[in-house]
Nucleic acid binder design. Structure first.
Lengths: 331, 331
DNA sequence: GTGAAAGCGCTAACAT
DNA sequence: ATGTTAGCGCTTTCAC
């Protein structure tokens, strides 16, 4: 239980003042002489400035809050990884708030605000609006990731769901499919709603029956169930659009289990292009989200907001691209 | 840019002193009357104690550092999720340090120590020893997760690799297999080394040739390559032990691509029992790590260390159990 | 039970 | 360029 090494210790050893030490570690103006002496003393003492104390004076914690769900959907670990990487190079770290459907929001809120985060990213489809407005009123920059605020007040970075779903529909239509099904996510999820609507409209506009719709609730089991039930219909779809890859994997397996072959008897398209989509076992045709671009935009926007360069964040959406693999009928 | 609401603001509104407010929010001794008035004022002002300021006085940040790699291996997101959940209920949050093979350690180290973390968990096979000793010398409790320090100085929570690998070997032996292969991880990874050694020894002890060994470098592609090359041998193995599930999935697919059927022509066993192991597409026989127990132990130990109840942490390992599925030959 | 005062380790004016 | 000073928002003796 040795007492913490403080800036004062370093100052004394280097024969300078506290402020000199501070300046060295904040890239302030210092003579080369002092700098080296301080650095030397610091190394000797193994001194590191306390981020906590620094936060108190600068009111910059160098921490970004990340609220996220569903780490079993590979899309999210990927998001975490990339956000963490980009922010790390900017000197920020992510403080994690993994939420569940049944998480009570209030305490989380208290915490979020209590930690003095420099910004908050909401990458979970639920619990967004409430927390977001609280953050905004506490003037903490907030951004939604991969979903958009229906109320239009919380800025968000997302994929162009409408355009993406239309590309998917067009692809399926182009393949000559005639009976469509769609596996949706959660009702409160903007992306699920958008993608579903856009897909449906496109199919209708092409003169076909409205797609069969079933919710997979964003879970593997839910989607498996949904697809199995669709396949049991008298006239099952010959083309399936799954709102995300995670559920598409379930679809693929439900189809196989029913004795059909994906890409032959029935086409399946996902959304995200997560890492395992290209595994031979799946070879999933999917609409790729430009994840790195989205992350880049998120980091950029938040950094702007933190530095005060740009007070008001605005939403932006990015265009995905279709990655055609074996799960859709070959022409 | 409204100024932060401070405890003093609440005190004034409630007509009490700063200390009274503090006591209310730290479960100190306060009269019921004061408590309600303070709470009332706090709510009205939307006051939350600053965790930063609190940290400075208490030297408890309520944050745990988590260093981790390989978020594309589902095992780790699962670890993150569970650790986050358990710690959250104890009032702690995880600060994330996602590292890569090429990450430069020094800056990460500075940060780790700078943030004033209450404890650190090292769940990445690399970069462990160096950081760990630094933490220990700064008297920050450290624990390795899912790997053990070869030097024996850093305490760790892990699965009993030796026992696990032996169970796997025995199972394969019991199935009547005769030619074995093993897909290893990284040389610097203790679990890889332990599992490999124990498996090999068991096979040798049973009177068979030493297993073919190939490194998959913990990556999908690496493992795919490794297995493909094994299958191209003149006498390919009829049973494969993959050091972890992530690589076992690659093995399964490499086998399929070679025209063979896992569970029929060749048995495959993994290690971890990650969420997708039971997906029909894989149906992977695997040695399940008692993850929740391990997490429980980690949280418990760290909490003890933080509170000072127990100064010296010790290592412990947990017994896994074999989950038999379709990827191994049916008897 | 409550308030006053000291101080956690740092940064940022302000002097010099 | 460097040192002095005054806090940042909180907890915690210490008196009362």
């Amino acid at each position: 239980m040795k007492p913490r090494v403080t800036g004062l210790d370093v100052a004394r050893l280097a024969g300078v003042s506290k402020s000199a030490v501070s300046r060295v570690f904040t890239r302030g103006v210092v003579s080369e002489d002092v700098r080296t002496r301080v650095l030397e003393a610091a190394k000797q003492l193994k001194y590191r400035p306390s981020n906590t104390a620094r936060s108190l004076t600068t009111s910059q914690s160098k921490m970004i809050g990340l609220a996220i769900t569903q780490l079993d959907n590979q899309f999210y670990p990927d998001v975490v990884q990339r956000l963490s990487d980009r922010f790390a190079t900017e000197g920020y770290r992510l403080l994690l708030f993994v939420t569940h459907g049944d998480t009570d929001l209030d305490p989380v809120l208290d915490e979020l605000l209590g930690y003095g985060l420099d910004a908050v990213i909401l990458a979970s489809s639920s619990l967004t609006a409430e927390i977001a407005t609280e953050c905004m009123s506490a003037s903490v920059p907030v951004l939604m990731f991969n979903s958009v605020d229906p109320g239009g007040v919380v800025p968000g970075i997302s994929c162009d769901d409408k355009a993406g779903a239309e590309i998917v529909a067009d692809h399926l239509l182009g393949l000559g499919h005639t009976r469509f099904g769609i596996v949706t996510g959660l009702r409160q999820s903007s992306s699920s709603v958008q993608r579903t609507r856009a897909f449906r409209n496109r199919i209708l506009a092409a003169g076909f029956d409205a797609p069969l719709e079933r919710s997979g609730a964003y879970t593997f089991d839910g989607a498996f169930e949904a697809v199995s039930s669709m396949l049991a219909e008298s006239e099952p779809p010959d083309a399936l659009f799954c709102i995300n890859d995670h559920m598409a994997f379930a679809a693929l397996q439900a189809i196989q289990e029913s004795g059909r072959t994906p890409g032959v008897d029935i086409s399946v398209v996902g959304f995200d292009n997560v890492g395992i989509s290209n595994w031979p076992a799946f070879s999933l045709t999917t609409l790729e989200q430009p994840l790195q671009e989205m992350v880049e935009a998120t980091v950029g926007a938040l950094l702007d907001a933190i530095s005060g360069r740009k007070v008001k964040l605005n939403s932006s959406s990015f265009q995905g691209r279709l990655v055609v693999r074996g799960s859709t009928r070959q022409v």
